[in-house]
């Protein structure tokens, strides 16, 4: 499916005998923000984690179907999972900086990917921090521990760390749910800027956030996609009654 950056076809995922994803077929556009919404336990985070094979680390998980990124099935045996996760970065709900300096956090990825030259590392750290809109706040605190930063700053350092290995897809699992409105706005503005270079898929429970930031929106319910539509339609005239009920807070 050359039209899409990411394409899943008949994707099923089982935790033991529990089928958490049911025949999920979806095409995700390049350089767009796609939000995944749905009540807790509907499979949206599980789906997100199939896109960088993070579910591989969980015991007893079985996956069927195709997950194509740039027309390559990422579940093929010859796919290098480490290289895949370099291309498909991930940001989690709770910021998770390493207990190291800001500089070492951002330089970590390039370093393990073989960049040794100090000047080159400095450049990568600066560029990544600028892209993550955190440079001005940390440029004089590069050697301070990242743990000492505010929650919003920590989350942007994590984004800078993900960007440092130059991914082309960024997965975000409720990246702003623990942040105050100002920090949330910064993350959202950052997403708008990043989508010119990246394809972003975000899981969010915040309907207003999905409406504000995403171009397209997929509504998951009990492991299935009920509706996949432009965000504009999703919040003004959804095709399905279940979507209307969910986005207006009538269940979920």
């Amino acid at each position: 499916m050359k039209d899409y950056k990411i394409y899943t076809k008949d994707l099923n995922l089982y935790y033991g005998s529990n089928r958490a994803l049911k025949d999920v077929t979806i095409g995700i556009d390049e350089n767009k923000i796609t939000s995944l919404i749905g009540p807790s336990g509907c499979g949206k985070s599980t789906f997100l984690r199939t896109l960088n094979r993070l579910n591989d680390t969980i015991d007893n998980v079985k996956i069927e179907g195709d997950v194509m990124i740039d027309d390559i099935n990422i579940y093929d045996k010859n796919v290098d999972v480490v290289a895949l996760r370099k291309r498909v970065g991930m940001i989690f709900q709770k910021s998770n900086p390493f207990p190291k300096s800001v500089y070492e956090n951002v330089a970590y990825g390039p370093r393990i990917n073989g960049v040794k030259n100090k000047k080159e590392l400095d450049e990568i750290v600066e560029t990544s921090c600028k892209r993550a809109a955190i440079w001005d706040e940390v440029k004089d605190r590069m050697n301070d521990s990242a743990i000492g930063l505010s929650g919003g700053q920590q989350q942007r350092v994590c984004i800078a760390r993900a960007l440092a290995v130059d991914p082309d897809v960024l997965l975000m699992d409720e990246p702003a749910s623990a942040l105050d409105p100002i920090s949330t706005a910064k993350i959202e503005e950052l997403m708008f800027e990043l989508k010119t270079d990246l394809t972003i898929v975000i899981v969010t429970h915040n309907m207003q956030q999905a409406a504000r930031v995403s171009d397209k929106c997929a509504f998951f319910l009990m492991g299935e996609i009920v509706e996949y539509n432009s965000t504009k339609n999703m919040f003004t005239k959804p095709d399905k009654e279940e979507t209307q009920n969910y986005v207006s807070g009538r269940f979920g």
Partner: peptide
């Protein structure tokens, strides 16, 4: 309430 969809209309 920041209404959407049918409610908004």
């Amino acid at each position: 309430t920041q209404p959407v969809a049918n409610d908004l209309r």
